[in-house]
Amino acid sequence: MSTEQEEASIRCLVAKVGLDGHDRGAHVISRAFRDAGFEVIYSGLHNAPEEIVQAAVQEDVDVLGISILSGAHDTLVPKIMDGLAEYGAKEDTLVLVGGVIPEEDRPALESAGVAQIFGPGTSIEETISFVRENAPER
C-alpha cells in the first residue's frame, strides 16, 4: 500500500466538547489533517461527551481530536474516555487533546488514556507526524 493510501485511510473526528465556543483551532487542525490526506469529520460546537463518543464509534474513527479551551477538560475528557471504554473503542482510538491544559492537569488526562496533549504553539507538522506515527492500524 502506498503512503498516500495509508494516510487516506486515517479517519479523524475533531470534536468540540461542552460549552466551549472557541473553534478556530479546531477548524485549523481539521483543514490541516484534510490537507495531509486524512479523512476528517468535524463535530461542530457544544457537544456533550456522550455525543462525541457516539460519533467516534459510529464513524469508526482511528483518531479523536478533542479541542477544549473552557477549562472543563478535567471533567469532560475523562467522560469521553469512559464512554469509549464502554463501547470497547478506547484501545482502538488514538485520543488527542488540544487546548490550554495546565501542566498539573496533564498526568490525569494521560492516565485516563489521552495519547498526547497539544498546547498553544504546537506546529501543525508535529501534530500530523504524531498522528501518522501513532494512529492504530486497521
Results as ranks from 00 to 15, higher is better:
2 S>L: 00
4 E>M: 00
4 E>H: 00
4 E>R: 01
5 Q>F: 00
5 Q>E: 05
6 E>M: 04
7 E>R: 05
11 R>W: 04
14 V>E: 10
15 A>H: 01
15 A>E: 04
17 V>G: 06
18 G>K: 14
20 D>I: 00
20 D>E: 07
21 G>K: 02
23 D>M: 02
23 D>R: 00
24 R>P: 01
26 A>L: 05
27 H>W: 03
27 H>S: 12
29 I>R: 00
30 S>P: 09
32 A>C: 10
41 I>G: 01
43 S>Q: 04
46 H>N: 12
47 N>S: 08
47 N>R: 14
48 A>C: 03
48 A>D: 12
48 A>R: 15
50 E>H: 06
50 E>S: 15
51 E>A: 14
51 E>R: 10
52 I>V: 15
53 V>I: 06
58 Q>P: 00
59 E>D: 10
60 D>C: 07
61 V>W: 09
63 V>Q: 09
64 L>N: 06
65 G>P: 06
65 G>C: 15
68 I>H: 08
68 I>F: 02
69 L>Y: 14
70 S>N: 13
70 S>K: 13
71 G>T: 11
71 G>H: 08
72 A>G: 15
74 D>M: 15
74 D>Q: 13
74 D>C: 14
75 T>D: 15
76 L>A: 08
78 P>Y: 08
78 P>S: 09
79 K>N: 10
80 I>H: 04
80 I>R: 06
80 I>N: 06
81 M>Q: 09
84 L>W: 07
84 L>P: 10
90 K>R: 14
90 K>Y: 02
91 E>N: 10
91 E>W: 04
94 L>K: 11
100 V>E: 05
103 E>I: 15
105 D>W: 01
108 A>T: 05
108 A>H: 11
108 A>R: 11
113 G>H: 07
115 A>C: 01
115 A>P: 00
116 Q>N: 09
116 Q>S: 09
117 I>R: 04
118 F>N: 01
119 G>T: 14
121 G>D: 03
121 G>M: 07
124 I>R: 10
126 E>Q: 14
126 E>R: 09
128 I>S: 05
130 F>P: 04
131 V>P: 09
131 V>H: 05
132 R>K: 15
132 R>E: 07
132 R>Q: 12
135 A>T: 14
135 A>K: 12
